[in-house]
Design a protein around this nucleic acid. Structure first.
Length: 322
DNA sequence: CACTTGACCTGTCCGC
DNA sequence: TGCGGACAGGTCAAGT
């Protein structure tokens, strides 16, 4: 998914849209997307109130008044989209799986497909701003309906992402949370600390190390390429071969591209949308990512695409040399 | 441990 | 237009 700036954008949207709302029902059609015990859902999710929305690395944490939290990882194609007004559709027509809640708070099997005529309206905007305008759709895995009948959809085409209900105090004990590195945008996070985090990965290339969430949190394929271009570092350079001055540059570039992207609402390469279903515009400002065949904005040399650390990688072969 | 590769899924795009 | 293969924002579990 979604890397740090996209998850941060979703978090900011949800903070405005769902805090204070009360969960009425939840429905889901894919156990992998929402692997929770029914009893826990009934005891700690239904009728709970949303108290806060937080982010750690690429993980979203939606806190509930029951001292439980919904932990969400969007992985490659996940979306969390809030729909504020709807019409022409009933709860019984939502999704293909089971619904928890409603009046009886009991499991209710759903056999109807999503209503193809269900209409959901978003705030007016440019037609290209939205990628989702009729939810639920076939990528909808989880639907939460609030007491005012507004809805939060977890959509995920590739089913890599997940939503988990767990006690808030146990969230930091998730294996991923135990391992994940520092937040690169924290004001007190320094270049010196940044450089020190890479010591463990001296014998691999800098791109693989940047993508390693246990080194630095939140960097993914887009911002790794963008930051390496900014620091004029070839992605295949061995970490151990980089002088401290390059780490200082890379530290600044990681923070620059991520802050810029948050300002632009994130990157919509394919599926990403924010909490209102709208695209982000960072790709309009990208210097190398997905720009193979175009000119390097710094020197005019053609941008090329390689494979580094098993990922599509974009560089200027003139600016970025080993 | 550090490091690399394939697997997890669905959809799209590109070449034949 | 059909079909096969490569590829897509991220982690993990296995390999070496």
């Amino acid at each position: 998914m979604p890397e740090l700036p996209e998850v941060e954008t979703v978090k900011r949207g949800l903070l405005k849209l769902i805090v204070g709302k009360t969960v009425k029902t939840v429905s889901f059609d894919n156990p992998k997307s929402f692997p929770n015990a029914t009893a826990d859902v009934e005891a700690f999710l239904l009728n709970s109130k949303i108290t806060d929305v937080r982010r750690r690395a690429k993980v979203l944490i939606i806190d509930l008044s029951t001292n439980y939290s919904l932990v969400v990882h969007l992985k490659m194609t996940g979306q969390l989209v809030f729909v504020g007004e709807h019409k022409g559709i009933r709860d019984s027509e939502m999704g293909n799986g089971v619904t928890l809640g409603s009046k009886s708070n009991t499991l209710t099997p759903i056999s109807q497909p999503p209503n193809p005529n269900g209409e959901y309206r978003f705030a007016a905007g440019h037609p290209n701003d939205s990628l989702v305008n009729n939810l639920p759709d076939k990528s909808t895995r989880v639907t939460i309906t609030f007491s005012d009948n507004t809805k939060l959809f977890f959509n995920d085409q590739r089913k890599f992402g997940w939503v988990r209900l767990m006690p808030t105090l146990e969230v930091p004990n998730l294996p991923f949370m135990m391992r994940v590195g520092p937040e690169p945008l924290e004001p007190d996070f320094t270049a010196k600390q940044f450089a020190a985090r890479f010591a463990r990965r001296a014998r691999t290339n800098i791109k693989a190390a940047l993508l390693d969430q246990s080194v630095i949190a939140g960097v993914g394929n887009i911002y790794a390429d963008e930051a390496l271009w900014g620091a004029k570092i070839h992605p295949s350079t061995l970490v151990g071969d980089l002088p401290y001055s390059k780490f200082q540059l890379l530290y600044s570039e990681v923070r620059y591209v991520m802050n810029l992207s948050i300002e632009k609402g994130g990157s919509t390469n394919r599926n990403y949308v924010n909490a209102e279903g709208k695209k982000g515009s960072y790709m309009d400002f990208a210097r190398v990512f997905r720009r193979e065949g175009l000119d390097c904005p710094r020197c005019g040399t053609e941008i090329i695409k390689l494979r580094v650390a098993g990922r599509g990688t974009h560089i200027c072969s003139s600016c970025q040399q080993i």
